[in-house]
Design a binder for these strands. Structure first.
Lengths: 249, 249
DNA sequence: GTTTGACATATTGCATCAAATCTCCGCGAT
DNA sequence: ATCGCGGAGATTTGATGCAATATGTCAAAC
């Protein structure tokens, strides 16, 4: 758990709930808690070494980020993934990130340019993932910071918050593809070209590159998981098959 | 507002928490719980006739909608309002609602047109607010439904969710202006013209009208509350106890 | 006038109880 | 004989009360 919080960056968070929120979010994003997984508080309590009360509040807070669903009388569950959700996520992210990028390019000053350059530099200094499929936590953290910095000069907190939410959501899918293995992709070049167009204040080209960047990620995810139409495409190690719809009450 | 659930549309919500969430959201939107108000669970417990645990979870869920803030070791608080937030909200809503409206106009079918027409009809059948400043809950509910229906044909759940969040946020400001009184505004004509352009599939005109519609609301809010620069612009003058009249169950 | 200490209040977390759901097993019907 | 239906046990969730820690305030002392 490196630094997943791209929102408020306060130093003091002495409450158990806040720390558990970060740990569970990390586990969801990394796939340790697979999509669709039921979050039984009694089973999670020993895993995170906390009581049920902070766990309940942690799940509730994660629901605010769209990572957990709340079903009355049925507890919490990791939000399932689906092909339709991925496509919606991709299109919405293209639209909103484009808006935010235009705003950032219109208002960004010299110091912002420096931050973008620095973020790109740190990102290029690391390798995206090992060839064996294990992803590098440091690169993942830098990648998130890079995209956040790129849009950071946009002076719309609401839009940035939405973009951050969409980014986290997309992470769940992207890491599936990355961990799945081969991805012939020059992602360094994509990031570099994006920064080049951004610093040149070429809004049209930068937005086009960003749209392409997002689209390519989705293509790789779909290529890695062609059967991404059901709700539980991977993992779901539980052998219990629930019966078909025979629920009436 | 009697229809708070614009997300998952399940019928059964027998938990105390879910009902309290709706009641508190209603009170926040209506201004009964003013912006910046500290939410002391011990004081709210008798007011809503529930314990502190469901109240805690309710506040946590409202934080997911951006209506409540969580401060570690300092409890919950109604999100304050500010001029900057209103301006950001307005601009972001113009951008996102426009995107959603274009999507809805591109994909909406005949039945959607019927729903929009019906929603407009129901809205026109009611009066926005009494001349004395008291706002009509039925009109408010229909108004929310109208805007939701207008964008409803857009096939992007994420975008619609964001638009719904922004709408609720704007409601807190708009109702301030409405309850403040005087607003020489032909809002019926605005809605009617918006529907006319939408059904004519004139995307440019419809989006322009929608942008204007949102902008005018903000202008009225700013006109009604010129000193909207500090965090607690109105009310907040009753630190004692506000009347506990909303008790129904 | 500033600082420090103590009191009162509020928030956090845990243990326990009640209610609802899920699972599994048995029975009957086709 | 297999499939559908119903009920009892077990598990899980929802909610209350209580204990512990942290915060904010007020007053007294320097």
């Amino acid at each position: 758990m490196a630094a997943p919080s791209r929102i408020a960056g306060l130093a003091s968070e002495p409450t158990l709930t806040s720390t558990v929120v970060d740990r569970i979010r990390n586990d969801i994003l990394r796939g340790v808690l697979p999509p669709g997984e039921k979050l039984r508080l009694e089973h999670l309590a020993p895993r995170y070494a906390v009581g049920r009360t902070p766990l309940r509040e942690a799940c509730c807070r994660l629901a605010s980020e769209g990572l957990v669903t709340i079903e009355d009388q049925r507890g919490f569950r990791v939000v399932p993934i689906s092909r339709a959700d991925l496509l919606d996520l991709t299109r919405t992210r293209q639209q909103l990130d484009t808006l935010a990028l235009r705003g950032a390019m219109a208002r960004g000053d010299i110091s912002w340019e420096g931050e973008v350059t620095a973020a790109l530099h740190r990102l290029l200094r690391r390798t995206p993932a090992s060839s064996d499929g294990t992803l590098d936590d440091d690169w993942e953290a830098e990648h998130g910071r890079f995209h956040a910095t790129l849009l950071g000069a946009c002076d719309s907190p609401w839009l940035l918050k939405f973009c951050a939410t969409l980014f986290d959501q997309s992470e769940r899918y992207r890491r599936l593809a990355v961990s799945h293995g081969r991805h012939a992709r020059d992602i360094e070049e994509e990031h570099t070209a994006l920064v080049r167009a951004t610093l040149a204040r070429d809004a049209e080209r930068a937005c086009a590159l960003l749209v392409e960047h997002i689209a390519r990620t989705t293509e790789l995810v779909l290529a890695a998981h062609p059967g991404l139409s059901v709700n539980e495409p991977v993992s779901e190690s539980l052998p219990t098959k629930q019966r078909s719809a025979s629920r009436k009450a």
